[in-house]
Amino acid sequence: MRLWRFKGLSMTYFAGIDIGSLTTEVVILDSNADMLSYSINLTGADCNEAVDQALGQALSRAGLSRDQLSFIVATGYGRVTIPFSDKKITEISCHGTSAHHLFPDTETVIDIGGQDSKVIRIDKEGKVLDFTMNDKCAAGTGRFLEVMAGAFRVSLEDFGQLSLKAEREIPISSVCTVFAESEVISLIAQNQAREDIIRGLHSSVVNRIWNMVQTVGVHGAVTMSGGVAKNRGVVVLMEEKLGKPIHIHTEPQIMGALGAALLAKRHFLQEK
């Protein structure tokens, strides 16, 4: 029985591919919805190449080949560019699905990605009830924090930790990424403590997201997804605002792809 299963003869496999503005993630699931492997790659200029690379990596980690995949769902901004996907689903439904799968008590999902941030309200079955997204502006997104970390020449990992070490907060008034960067540079020139400035930047992102959270309303447990969920600085400030802890998966970046893979399984079974 074990050998049979090992060779993948009885199993069907599903892939979810999330092509974001910064990174492309792939998740491979088996028919029990267990995650076999995942991969995270930079999207770069060529979407198709990034997808091939990410999918190839994930497949080799799972010991599978592409023709063993029964159903592929693409999501994220690049979803329309993948010619071989069986279905394209928005990242809004995907994040809702994965948050519900990992943390069934979730009713509010905060996803902060590279170029946009979303607050999604889901029902007890993981279906999207309502959502809101940032408008045509990168303030309140991962890209904002990335640019600011660049201004301090600090890695993104250290950036969030530095925010937690601040003694006070220096408010950043500009919401525009470019203007905020100039503001930061002039604060550095005034010899302000960098931790305090960094804390101000994190607050700026959290305040922006908080407005969106209030539009949708806080219901049930809150789950955070997207690369920014790895940033402790943002998470701690958001938890303070919410007054309750936030669920975060060990790899929050792959939640879009995981949702896509779960929906791939669902659609495969429906079509069957």
């Binding site: 928005t90 809004i92 439904s93 999207v128």
Partner: peptide
């Protein structure tokens, strides 16, 4: 210039899914 195709499409498609 005040319109973003990708952002709008994602919102509309999520609405279609709902």
């Amino acid at each position: 210039r005040a319109y973003s195709e990708e952002q709008t499409r994602t919102r509309l498609e999520a609405f279609f899914e709902a």
